[in-house]
Simulated assay, not measured.
Amino acid sequence: MLAEQWSGRTVVVTGGRGFIGAHFTAELAAAGAKVISLHRAGQAAPAPDGVQEIELDLLSTLEVDALFRYVGAHADTLVHCAGIDGNADFKKRNFGSILDSNVRITSNVLNGARDHGIGTVVLLSSAEIYSASSAGLVTEEDDYRKLMELSGDGYTLAKVFAELLADAYRQQFGMRVFLARPTNVYGPGDGLNPRSRRVIPAMLARIAAGEPVQIWGDGQQRRSFIHVHDLVHAVLEMVGDGSYDTFNVATRSSVSLLELARLLFAEFEVAERIELDTTKAGGAKARELSADKMYEVIGFTPRPLADGLRDTVHWYKSTLAH
């Protein structure tokens, strides 16, 4: 199905060597698209054969304008995955610089697409834009602006800004901007950068090192996870179909962090060692997304968490565990 929608198209992917961007680059190339992958200096993991790679500082307005002047005549789609991210400690220590950098990156990218005629823009947003106090399944129509949590981290606030700017550019300039709001993403390739480890690779690193997994709170806080391959396929099918400009990307199941840790210990086939720190806040009790729009359009069912964790642990053991 992806080949039918994307073969022959020219797609620019920002953050093309990052965790999610690298998967977009590979899947688009496999579907027959010509991919121009943008990455910042010093990033490892080169792209697949046939992908044009360009090193670019997305914070530089001059560099971005020059690049888009070059690709604008050929590209019809932009997938924006780039941004500064990190674990909770990194985000806390770099609140302002993360907010400033990601806001400027998004502005530069949207302005480049607007000024040089790239007709379709895909922005990777986040489920974190929704308020932690939202009850029940959160739909795309729930107005995150009514309960905007301005005390959040700079990464989340930059995602909110990106959505506000996308809405404004849709209205003022008639741009076709898709906003994908994924829940927690995991899978092969995550964990290469220790600074930005998400919950699953952070747990894997401790298990592989023979250390206990530490969970803040009582461990009962529930989260939804989506495998990175399923995220990429869902976003590309949603954009190819075009029925919805804004959509959640999630599975219909969730798991507590305590259950998640136990599943990972079982996949590693080692005894459980889990420490709960109830003196520290464990975050929202639950943040679960309605994915009805996504399931209406996509032609597959996202894999169960247990299958995705098995795939991820296999990759981790063969790549990083040593």
Rank of each mutant, 00 (worst) to 15 (best):
L257D: 08
V199T: 07
M294G: 00
N193D: 14
G96V: 08
L157K: 06
M238H: 13
A291I: 01
G15T: 02
I274N: 01
S131I: 08
R104H: 03
N193G: 03
T183R: 01
E269G: 12
G282R: 05
I207A: 10
E27Q: 13
R181G: 01
F247E: 03
L258A: 09
D89T: 08
Y244D: 02
I118F: 10
A127T: 03
A202W: 13
A31F: 07
G242L: 06
I84V: 13
N248I: 06
G16N: 07
T77Q: 11
Y295H: 11
E163N: 07
V122I: 06
D89Y: 09
V35G: 02
G219M: 01
G240N: 06
T106V: 08
V103K: 03
I129H: 00
R273K: 15
Y144R: 02
I98E: 00
V13W: 06
V103I: 11
R303D: 00
G174A: 06
N193A: 03
G219Q: 02
L62F: 11
R206D: 15
T106D: 02
D85L: 11
G16D: 02
K159E: 10
S196K: 02
L165I: 08
E296G: 05
F247C: 06
E4P: 03
D311E: 14
W6T: 09
L258C: 08
G152S: 15
T278N: 11
R145A: 10
L56C: 13
I54Y: 12
R206A: 12
A205L: 10
S126M: 05
A266L: 14
L137H: 04
R287N: 04
K146F: 14
G83W: 01
G210V: 09
G217P: 00
A3L: 13
D115P: 00
V11L: 10
T61A: 15
V177E: 03
V71S: 09
